[in-house]
Design a protein around this nucleic acid. Sequence first.
DNA 1: CGTGCTCCCTGCAAGC
DNA 2: TGCTTGCAGGGAGCAC
Length: 313
Amino acid sequence: MPEGPEVEQVRRELLLLEGQVVQQAQLTPLALKYQRYVEQEEKIGLLRGRTLTKVERRGKYLVWWFGPDPDNLKVMNHLGMTGAWHVSGQKNEELPSHSKVVLDFASGTRAIFDDVRNFGRFVVYRSAEEMMTRCEALRKLGIDGLAVPFPQAEFEDLLAIPRNQTKTLGEVLLDQRLVAGVGNIYKSEALFRARLHPETIVSELGRQEMKSLGKAVSEVLCQALESGGSTISNFQSPTGVEGKAQEWHQVYAREDRPCLVCGTPVERLVQRDRSTFYCPTCQPRKKGGRGTKRQESAKKTTQKGRVGRRQRR
DNA sequence: CGTGCTCCCTGCAAGC
DNA sequence: TGCTTGCAGGGAGCAC
């Protein structure tokens, strides 16, 4: 699943499209089976004839800017779990099986948005203002986890606000209003690097621990970007470049396997329906920390690799 | 303002 | 072997 570093990787590979003019923008027949794209049917036509002036990343979102007016059309694009862009010069090739959006540029370049699980988004707005009004999540994003230097003071200020004080570290790190760009993989990796137990309550953190946490988040994300992102299960970059970040995952998806530092079996717990992997030895619970109340909602799993989940359908 | 719950999706691993 | 079940995941939208 693309997190901040993977989305940044995608952005960089889309940069070659900047300055190009859209000849045609279409939704695929498959896309029109979903309400979220039917809503875009009319607006996507507005892209024709526009120049793509910029592709920027905000957290895990890509924002596509279309000119000529700098405050002209904007596209909010989220890759969700399985969204991927394919860029090529071939227009006669068969589309990937879950393609949703096809952008043809005057240069002959074609960009295809393919999204297997359909959790991604591609939403056209008439202006930046409309986008920021309509897309609350984008408006509320916290600091960018990939920012260099990492804004540590701002990070600590955000941790100090009331809604964050009572959360566990595992919960708060996934909140895009704190650090935008952190996902489930780098959440576990950052906690491991900071040697902090995922059930630690934010208010229990000392100055030094907040510093380690910010540093760990920043380092994990930046290192992932340098390695070209994690190529895991369903993430693919536009040009098929394979990331190497998964090669240094210390705890993620390593339940029951020995910690690479101390050999203790890695454990997994579930927080807000998301798995968190950690080493119980390297990331000990805080001494004297209360926090026992929290264990109810963050139950440790009993079966290997399976979690009891709510029933659906 | 906040929290917590449900839903969106489909490939595929696990279980029978 | 072949079928069914349900997990994986981030975010939107809703009720309260």
